[in-house]
């Protein structure tokens, strides 16, 4: 089996597509290959958050646990996604549970290392943050659509009833 370098793997990942290869090599220094079995915990709510993951293949579920609902999956992430933003800002703690659903291979980046490299090379840091911000905005948009519960109040296809909401009195409404 031919092993490939980490920066080669990163170059194939959605998030890093088109990034300057020098930056990739620089960032790869903070990363290592990891794998998770189905059901394995990647992170727990409250854990120290010092990792950023680029998911290469598989599926992970972001969950929230409440006494009322039990474990509720609020989002799944698959091939080409990135996971984790709590490593960016203090107090560097995960706010959700994350669990592998399928066998998952990812590149795990050390948060402290990554923050340091972005500080050292602001141009690279800016490039990284731009891509990261894009991921966050799309995620926020999708979350908003989920929140809107668009299917909740939805229609019978092609329109509403002809005599909806009219009381069936002697005059029929």
């Amino acid at each position: 089996m031919e092993t490939r370098s980490l920066d080669e793997l990163l170059g194939e990942h959605n998030f890093f597509e088109g990034m300057d290869p020098r930056y990739l090599t620089f960032i790869a220094g903070c990363g290592r290959n990891v794998a998770f079995h189905p059901g394995a915990w990647i992170a727990r709510d409250g854990d120290a958050a010092d990792s950023f993951y680029a998911i290469r293949h598989g599926q992970v579920a972001i969950e929230v646990h409440s006494p009322r609902t039990g474990a509720l999956v609020i989002q799944t992430l698959g091939d080409g996604a990135v996971l984790g933003w709590s490593w960016l800002f203090p107090p560097y703690r995960w706010h959700f549970d994350v669990r592998a659903v399928e066998p998952t291979r990812a590149v795990q980046f050390d948060g402290t290392c990554l923050r340091g490299k972005c500080d050292d090379d602001p141009a690279m840091g800016y490039e990284f943050m731009k891509r990261f911000a894009r991921v966050l905005t799309r995620s926020l948009e999708a979350t908003r659509l989920q929140l809107l519960d668009v299917y909740g109040e939805e229609r019978a296809p092609a329109g509403a009833a002809a005599t909806e909401e009219r009381p069936l009195g002697p005059r029929g409404g």
């Binding site: 229609r155 019978a156 296809p157 509403a160 009833a161 002809a162 005599t163 909806e164 009219r166 069936l168």
Partner: peptide, 9 residues
């Protein structure tokens, strides 16, 4: 396929 949302449906 009908969703029951009003009198007729």
């Amino acid at each position: 396929t009908v969703r029951a949302v009003g009198n007729v449906t």
